[in-house]
Design a binder for these strands. Structure first.
Lengths: 157, 157
DNA sequence: TTGCATACCATATTTTCCCATGTTATATAA
DNA sequence: TTATATAACATGGGAAAATATGGTATGCAA
């Protein structure tokens, strides 16, 4: 496959999680990861009961931003990055495309036997199905309420 | 073919959708896509019962804009990226020029066996034929009402 | 040896690819 | 301009490949 210009995690995919914590990384995601690396990085979301995943490059960019930006000297931001880097862990997928999520991550996201992968552009999230259903409803309501100027239609057009 | 200067989706094309969800991307559209990529991105319109399609570059630009405009931990950015990228999906067309639309998209647009592609410049939309007929009438009426000075009647007379 | 994690194998299902055909559009020659 | 040949396109059906997922075996470490 020719090298892709863009690397965006998209779509919403539901996969089973077995007793060992094994779950298939959606093939679309794997295709993206494979072009740049062999593994992803996952960590507990700071703001939601879900797992976040991304390529290591993104965390590297975050580290660089922290070094360069005055904004990021704030105690809060400093604390947040501590939490992220302290929590993040690499996950390689096997020949069948599965990763093995840790107990810590699964517990944080309240995931037992089913996981929902939600694309987020440079990142993605992994949710408990019921939780994601509620979250998506909340977001839709919130976005429509807040401002049409932030709605996709206005930005993308 | 010489390199095109502009990349605008235009015209209105009606195509069949088979039981597998397969539908031919209009050849004019394919010609545009082929010059920049091998696939398109589709998602449910936030405001209308139709599918929207565009090139991935457009969403990539959006991802970059959001990274730069809002800070890494912004709640608003979080919500928007979930909503947009969680819904969008890449679609590659095969050697015969078809894409396979998902059940989710078809349902949102109320499309069963026929789809109407409507050019929209950088984007295009896919409609159920009846719905599009009504929508087009509505849009025309709306335009005439809002801008009487541009109405055909006044100009042609 | 036991527990745990990883690698390997098997299979049902889904998705993608390939070929065939009718139709439409385009080009060429009379 | 008309008739005919040629190419491009849309569309249906089936074969092949990829994916998700359960189960088993293997290796390492406590």
């Amino acid at each position: 496959m020719a090298l892709r210009k863009t690397f965006l995690f998209m779509d919403t995919i539901i996969n089973k999680v077995d007793a060992k914590g094994r779950v298939s990384l959606p093939s679309d995601y794997r295709a993206i990861v494979k072009e740049l690396s062999t593994e992803i990085v996952c960590y507990r979301s700071l703001t939601s009961p879900c797992i976040e995943g991304c390529l290591e490059d993104l965390l590297d960019k975050l580290a660089t931003d922290m070094e360069n930006s005055l904004d990021f000297f704030s105690q809060t931001q400093d604390d947040l990055t501590n939490l992220i880097f302290g929590d993040a862990k690499r996950f390689a997928f096997d020949s069948t495309g599965r990763i093995v999520l840790t107990e810590k991550l699964l517990k944080h996201a309240q995931i037992t036997d089913t996981a929902v992968f939600v694309g987020k552009g440079r990142k993605f999230q992994i949710w408990n199905p019921e939780n994601w259903e509620k979250e998506e409803a909340r977001i839709r309501a919130e976005v429509l309420k807040k401002r049409p100027s932030l709605a996709p239609k206005e930005n993308v057009q």
